[in-house]
Design a protein around this nucleic acid. Structure first.
Lengths: 345, 345
DNA sequence: ACCGTTCCCGGAATCGTTCCCGAAATGGCG
DNA sequence: CGCCATTTCGGGAACGATTCCGGGAACGGT
């Protein structure tokens, strides 16, 4: 019990050399005789020696660990992005610490503090819905911990950012509804302090403009990114004197709430009303009728965020300019939005 | 940039005392004058000093970190359990490192190695479906790293275990089908090397015995815990000369595959065939018809596992005996299994 | 033969913290 | 007033690794 693992000092004693020699042999730093090197290496293999990462961190002031903060790991979107981050991070020798903010500003601050105290080498974060200020993130940057923002972010922080082309995705989704003959298209937007919500709203408006469809205030409502409020907004929209004939929801979460509400209210999709979401949750394809949506390259977002962060960590100097990577989304047409026969690919 | 955080040594210099004195003041270890203690504490507050956790780990040979290995964090069951683990761990000052085995034995071994190298203080794991041997886990135990197994586990490892009462859940699910008038009840089981699969199968068999329903080999098939194979097994069952009038699937994942297959094949649930799953995924309530299932107390599983692990970590001696906590599941009846009017609560 | 290089390797400092040991100062008591 | 116990604090070693510095041996050139 408590059998401590083998150390450099012990190997040095066993071989009758100094620990500097052992260290040199292991990291192959040139200044060492071929024969001694082989002896050390062989013993290390035999004893299955692994350097103590904690000691490494102490001397190198580097923990080979990156922190990830997302609102909720149970959300398939985020867990998939995390999967992507992990693939890149592990392959480059970094470990990933995962934190959940639960969309709470306070939790997010605590998590950031913890990451700082733990001396993580960097942070990848999708910020909570209603974070008021971002001093906690700036504090990290001041401490020399680089940050990459993905999906949900704000303009206040100067750093690399990764997003999907929300505007284009929203544009295509809305245009698809138009192509199905809808003219009375409503939009349920996310909280407008998030840029993704604003971009999606703009995509929606621009399609209306393109097809000379008048924009109507009462057909655009905002909503948290969750199912319950989505249902409420659906009630609100369908209660209007003039009902929409299509709804573009800013996320699948919202769209699922709408989907349930519409069925409960007795509407048939897509005949009475067409519906399209955004994100492509695993659930969406299983609904009846299956939900049209915009798929986001989640794994790729993870890869991309991790690559950017590692480059920030491993280059000593801060880069000349921060870049914002924009990944492409893809429209997935399912039955919930297919009024016209034959438009299902 | 790179502003190193404040250390004990610096504070000692500023106050003109030795670092041992500062250390004593901070950790309040008695042997120190009240006045000096207050001076140190005040300076520490002013400079917002936080001890370097890496140095702490090095001297204490303790990382205040626990590892968690699950097959897949995108699985809502596991992400919810992780949520429960985190709540307990963070409240007791521990950090949680999350690993995914992707149901691969090799990945699981690598993860275990990594955890050992990282000097985690303990491990909570739900093992991969087809792990052949468990030497990698025993090696951890030999290194003094305690382990808690949850949900999926095997008898080979001697330690605390947390599970839900699979037998009772399966018994109630099957009995519910009987109460709906079904007599030709099929079961799609999980891989039989996992105890959860065997317990659920036993629950199913015991209900048949209780109601004098003959057990028929061809109505029991095994299957991976995923959707695709669930659909295949549904095809297989419905292709039988004598079709079942109800299916009890060992998990919701499987049940969802069955659900899709049945709809595609033109069967109506529950009239043609009743269906019930196990786990209560978020999706399950959204299917049409909504899927009956057995809900598992996931958060509680997380809490319980974390409590057990922390007790193992913090008590020096190995406990006299290892316990197996059994949590209660609860039957949730939805439309997919409700042949009789009025049995929906 | 002597000196300068090069090649190996040992010793020590370092990272931030805890902890043990010993020393100085203080106080109480005979 | 002196002695001993107690309080308070400083000086190290230790944790496991890297890295710089310097020294001894071998070796070649003049």
């Amino acid at each position: 019990m408590g059998k401590r693992s083998i150390t450099i000092k012990e190997m040095a004693r066993m071989l009758g050399v100094s620990k500097s020699t052992v260290s040199r042999a292991l990291r192959d730093s040139g200044e060492i005789g071929e024969e001694t090197k082989q002896r050390v290496l062989e013993l290390a293999r035999e004893l299955s020696y692994f350097p103590n990462p904690i000691a490494l961190s102490l001397v190198g002031n580097k923990s080979n660990t990156i922190g990830v903060i997302v609102p909720d790991i149970a959300n398939p979107f985020f867990s998939s992005v995390i999967g992507g981050i992990e693939e890149v991070a592990y392959s480059r020798g970094y470990h990933v610490m995962i934190y959940q903010s639960h969309d709470s500003y306070e939790r997010e601050r605590m998590d950031a503090r913890h990451i700082s105290a733990r001396h993580a080498d960097g942070l990848i974060i999708s910020i909570a819905s209603h974070s008021a200020d971002f001093e906690h993130l700036k504090a990290l940057q001041d401490n020399g911990i680089p940050i990459v923002l993905f999906d949900r972010f704000i303009e206040e922080i100067q750093t690399h950012k990764v997003q999907v082309d929300d505007y284009k995705g929203a544009f295509e989704a809305t245009e698809h509804l138009v192509s199905q003959g809808c003219r009375k298209i409503a939009h349920i937007s996310g909280p407008l302090n998030l840029s993704i919500s604003r971009h999606r709203l703009r995509g929606y408006r621009d399609v209306l403009a393109k097809y000379d469809i008048p924009f109507r205030e009462e057909w655009v409502v905002t909503c948290e990114y969750n199912q319950e409020e989505g249902a409420d907004r659906a009630y609100q929209l369908m209660a209007l004197r003039e009902r929409p004939d299509a709804i573009f929801a800013a996320s699948d979460r919202i769209a699922i709430g709408v989907h349930l509400a519409l069925k409960q209210l007795g509407y048939r999709m897509p005949d009475d009303i067409a519906l399209i979401g955004f994100s492509d949750l695993p659930v969406s394809a299983l609904l009846d009728p299956p939900l049209s949506t915009v798929v986001q390259p989640t794994k790729e977002m993870g890869h991309c965020s991790a690559e950017l962060l590692l480059s920030l960590i491993e280059s000593k100097k801060p880069p000349a300019a921060f870049e914002t990577k924009v990944l492409q989304s893809r429209l997935v047409i399912r039955r919930s939005s297919c009024k016209l026969p034959g438009s299902l690919s």
